[in-house]
């Protein structure tokens, strides 16, 4: 007689754990699925079940001058914000972690404060400040505003890396003959880079999806995509909105994947 294989007893805890995970996953993904259904459904309203599959809303989105202008503007702004917030956030994080500054805790809280403030207030305050200063509402003003709310993300991820950073590694480089500048570029920068870029990805997405801060700071014919979509929705609630959302999601995903490939955000986990 052959040995009877041990049957695993039913594990209720494990089943519940799996169910919980599936539920969370569904919670995150179902809205995206609904958007996709809406984007592909030819009727100008959400109907379930969908009556067919059509790309007409994507065509409308890509053929709409306003949409395209807004899409490119949003991408351009997000790219600028990515670069600026990496430089500013990275430098701030280094100064805060290394600078031996007086009132460091206060400064950290100060730089983080744009996250605590309702973004709509940040936007409104900047709008008034710009008008009072007489600089109007130029694109760079919008970029600065987005950067303001994006920097905390870079700051936080970079500070996290710097917190776990073994400074002996830098000392080892110095004692081996590397000047402070070379220590920074040969050792410090490569080691904090994953943290900086992880924050940069957040910064890009925060800018690309930014609505409340932009609301007051966009000018006629210079609206970002979220603002255009919001206003479009007030008059024409059709699938073009869903198509635009799908395009936004895919673009954001593409940026994350590309940065992941280029920089290796995974390394961040190991560090």
């Amino acid at each position: 007689m052959s040995a009877v294989a041990n049957r695993k007893p039913f594990d209720a805890g494990r089943a519940a754990y799996l169910a919980l995970n599936l539920l969370l996953l569904a919670f995150l993904l179902v809205p995206i699925a609904i958007i996709l259904v809406f984007a592909l459904n030819p009727t100008p309203y959400i109907s379930f079940p969908p009556v067919g599959v059509s790309l007409r809303w994507f065509v409308k989105f890509f053929e709409g001058d306003d949409f395209m202008r807004a899409l490119w503007l949003s991408l351009w702004i997000a790219a600028c914000v990515l670069v600026l917030s990496i430089v500013i956030g990275g430098a701030c994080a280094l100064a805060l972690a290394r600078g031996n500054l007086p009132g460091r805790a206060f400064l950290t809280a100060f730089f983080m404060s744009p996250l605590m403030l309702p973004a709509i207030l940040t936007g409104l305050a900047l709008f008034q400040a710009y008008l009072l200063a007489g600089i109007g509402r130029p694109v760079w003003g919008l970029i600065m505003a987005h950067t303001l709310v994006a920097v905390p993300y870079v700051l936080r991820t970079t500070l996290a890396v710097l917190h776990n950073f073994d400074r002996r590694i830098e000392e080892a480089a110095a004692v081996l003959g590397a000047s402070p500048a070379r220590v920074f570029f040969e050792v410090t920068l490569p080691l904090i880079r994953p943290g900086v870029f992880a924050g940069g990805v957040f910064a890009f997405i925060v800018s690309f999806d930014q609505f409340p801060v932009s609301l007051f700071l966009v000018v006629p014919k210079g609206e970002t995509l979220p603002v255009v979509l919001f206003n479009y929705m007030k008059f024409d609630l059709d699938g073009a909105i869903a198509a635009a959302s799908m395009v936004s999601i895919l673009l954001a995903l593409a940026v994350v994947v590309v940065l992941e490939r280029l920089i290796g955000l995974k390394a961040y986990v190991k560090l």
Binding site: L124, F127, Q128, L131, L132, L215, F216, V218, V219, P220, K221, E223, V227, V228, F230, N231, K234
Partner: peptide, 22 residues
């Protein structure tokens, strides 16, 4: 003509200086 189609109009007008309204 610079036509603003982006809501909200009233808060934007409120926030801009009265002697140089938006």
């Amino acid at each position: 003509v610079s036509a603003d189609q982006a809501f909200p109009f009233l808060p934007k007008l409120q926030a801009s200086p009265k002697n140089d309204p938006l």
